[in-house]
Amino acid sequence: MKRVYVNEKWCLGCHLCEYNCAFAQTGEPDMARALKDKTIHPNIRVEDGDDVHFAVNCRHCDEALCVKSCITGALSKTADGVVTIDQDKCVHCFTCVLTCPYGCILPTEDGAVTKCELCLKTTKGKPACVAGCPNNAIVFEER
């Protein structure tokens, strides 16, 4: 399946992907209005070292530990292999947060967890982090 991959050679650590992700989640037409004075909860996060930067988001593992660990069936895999979350079913037990080996599932302010769903549910059509990356460091491809 097509996944979001990061070529760390080209990642500048600008963190634009985090803001594009958070913006895509809001469904608003204007980023300034959508994110002004808000704390963002992006589903992609840039890890910064001294000379190395790379963005990390859900790997959509074939054997997804988060799906296996979910006690309510809120996390599931679509036929295409995308790990999705039904936030209405989430009971905030955070087992998935603990089991994800990549740290890619995080709680939100209202309790339910959030994770990358490859922008399936946003209005962007394709992953917003990929579209907005200024250096082609984030790609959406089959590997």
Partner: peptide
């Protein structure tokens, strides 16, 4: 000031 969301991209770049 109405449009700056403090993402600090300018600072990093």
């Amino acid at each position: 000031p109405d449009r700056c969301i403090g993402c600090r991209v300018c600072e990093r770049q």
